[in-house]
Design a binder for these strands. Structure first.
Lengths: 206, 206
DNA sequence: CTATGTGAACAACTTCACAGCC
DNA sequence: GGCTGTGAAGTTGTTCACATAG
């Protein structure tokens, strides 16, 4: 039962969370789970989880629950992370270095394949196994490799310009670490990581 | 008109975004703005913004709009970021290093005052001006300094343990970079930064 | 005439509760 | 008996539209 027709974005946003939890359950040796168990683990109600899944199909067995391996397959396919997207990393500062070193995208559908910086003193250096390229070559490389995904880790004043360049070159999903709201044309997605904003949100309750 | 009685958390979550935009407007020399202008800048509807503010008071002038300086004062006070919260940073890997070097919390109400790591080879080293302390001393330092806020940047398997220790020592707001759902008791807030989850969320639309 | 602040109308999301299947 | 999948009910959040103030 399900059309992928108009699934609310808020539901899409929870699928990666479910995937995270399922990966851990699988790593812990579990093969089966239930909406109840998953919900307890995540602080989400069990009907919420069942309703979320129901937008895409019927993944469980009544009476027993969900086979974890199968559910992961389904969710990764829905999110299109059952493949590895090549990612451009724009900005080669300390944060970019941390991203390359700790690689939080590993095993989650993304792999950084090229790094760019505009500062002459950084161009040509290596970050992990990647050579830092001149930001001027960004459009060329994005187009040649057909990159659709990028991570932006440049100062706030340069971010919009970089985003415009990326979009122009064909990128359609951008993760930005610049603490500003960026504008993109329809059909392009952008998400901002703003740790200070998250702290401020929590400070209200202190 | 307003009780701060029961303001929806989703509204609280937007205040830092408004603050970000106001800071930029102020930096650009603007003194006055309107819900319309702010909304255009942020991709939010103008009634949304007015309604959000109305939970806390009346900050504007009919006919003219909002004085940016005054609005910033009010919002920082509401979020309790009109002061500087001292923050414990747990985990001294590359990500922690990037946080210290790029300091995304500067000017936004938070300052990292101590860094901890459990690995003997890292203890005693410096990160910026801070000496990396033995994670064993965490409860002691948190208690002595009365820290209420912490950032967790340790591997996923160690995160829950660190969170428990922090909470036990009195921390009440935690920002975690571990890609797992962590559990905290009532009265303690936690937010997770999971860049891979954000990318996965966007991948759905590719 | 412009732009806020806000009840009332509307839309979106979540939870309930139960039929149906394992 | 246990747990899913799902319409219907309930709740929460957003937008409208206008009275009101500058």
């Amino acid at each position: 039962m399900a059309k992928r027709d108009e699934v609310p974005d808020i539901v899409i946003g929870r699928l990666p969370i479910y995937l995270r939890a399922l990966a851990r359950l699988a790593a812990g040796g579990w093969e089966i789970t239930s909406s109840q168990k998953l919900g307890d683990l995540l602080g989400v109600s069990s009907p919420q989880i069942r309703k979320d899944f129901s937008h895409f199909g019927e993944f469980g067995k009544q009476g027993s629950g969900y086979r974890i391996a199968y559910l992961r397959e389904q969710l990764t396919a829905i999110l299109k992370v059952d493949r590895e997207w090549e990612v451009a990393l724009v900005g080669a500062g300390p944060l970019a270095e941390a991203l390359i070193r700790e690689n939080p995208f590993a095993g989650r559908g993304f792999r950084v394949v090229s790094v760019f910086d505009r500062r002459p003193e950084r161009i040509g250096l290596r970050l992990g196994s990647l050579e830092i390229l001149d930001a001027q070559r960004l459009p060329e490389v994005v187009r040649e490799r057909g990159l659709k995904v990028a991570v932006v880790a440049v100062p706030a004043d340069e971010a919009q310009e970089m985003v415009d360049t990326l979009v122009e070159a064909g990128v359609r999903a951008i993760l930005s670490y610049a603490p500003i709201t960026l504008s993109v044309p329809p059909g392009v997605r952008i998400q901002t990581v703003d740790p200070a904003a998250l702290l401020q949100r929590m400070a209200y309750y202190l």
